[in-house]
Write a protein that binds this DNA or RNA. Structure first.
Ligand SMILES: [Zn+2]
Ligand SMILES: [Zn+2]
Ligand SMILES: [Zn+2]
Ligand SMILES: [Zn+2]
Lengths: 130, 130
DNA sequence: AATCAATCGCAACTTTGTTGCAATAATATT
DNA sequence: AATATTATTGCAACAAAGTTGCGATTGATT
């Protein structure tokens, strides 16, 4: 079994996630630590964090890929079944941890993961829109 | 107002959609008509079809972008609020027109569009998996 | 301190999507 | 039917996003 190591770059990425209130793209993360490590390294760190269930991957309606830290409490297996909101104006993606969709699907489908992304105007942008 | 024209390439793309039971990526479509038109033309046709509400765009959990023909009946305004299933094994994406998520979201968010994609094993692949 | 594997940097590459512009072809007008 | 108008196309060039291979480095284990 392969163990996962604590490196300078990985720690830096995690710190960025903790500070951020919204989901972040690879590019946004890299811009903050380009003196610390390479572009490719950031890709590989993100892959590992997703695999280790420390971070989850979010894809919005345009196909933009972002990542956010998981806020679950030491669960063994978990599905990221909460919704994400993608603002059309400020382009920020936010986890809505309390919004979970309910649905009925034919039993011959085996669901392993879900992606529920809502897009429109976030509270900030719908105010400033008047 | 700009009118939309019926061209050879557009007709070819639409025929491909009618024949297909699953959603298609740009590449999959282009491979079927590369003698007819250019790669860029396919991108532009897809853009137009989405704008004209003839086709809808689907993004799966990996960020893969696909397109499927709309099956609504002459509605003026419509949201593609049905679910899509993305099979991890055969990689096909299918519209589940009857599966629609219900959810409660704080009223200060203004939702314009949704993306609800489920992934796992489709009926075909979960059988052959035994 | 020595070992071993995970991680990293770098360079090269692929895939996906975009843009500008001149040429072409679909529709409207005469 | 010929002409005018403008949406559409092809091409070439570009840009963004992500991947791969490999030798060098570094974190963890003994
Ligand atoms: Zn906003
Ligand atoms: Zn989230
Ligand atoms: Zn399948
Ligand atoms: Zn659909």
């Amino acid at each position: 079994m392969k163990t996962t190591r604590k490196t300078t770059a990985k720690t830096a990425v995690l710190e960025i996630f903790v500070k951020s209130k919204t989901a972040l793209s690879h590019t946004e993360i890299y811009k903050q630590i380009e003196e610390i490590c390479d572009r490719v390294t950031v890709y590989r760190i993100l892959d590992r964090l997703v695999n280790d269930d420390i971070v989850h991957k979010i894809v919005d309606l345009d196909g933009t890929v972002k990542y956010a830290k998981c806020h679950h409490h030491a669960q063994r297996v978990h599905i990221h079944n909460h919704a994400h909101f993608s603002c059309e104006k400020c382009l920020e993606i936010t986890c809505l941890e309390n919004v979970k969709p309910s649905y009925i699907i034919p039993h011959n489908y085996k669901v392993n993961d879900i992606n529920f992304t809502l897009s429109g105007l976030c509270p900030n942008c719908s105010n400033s829109n008047i």
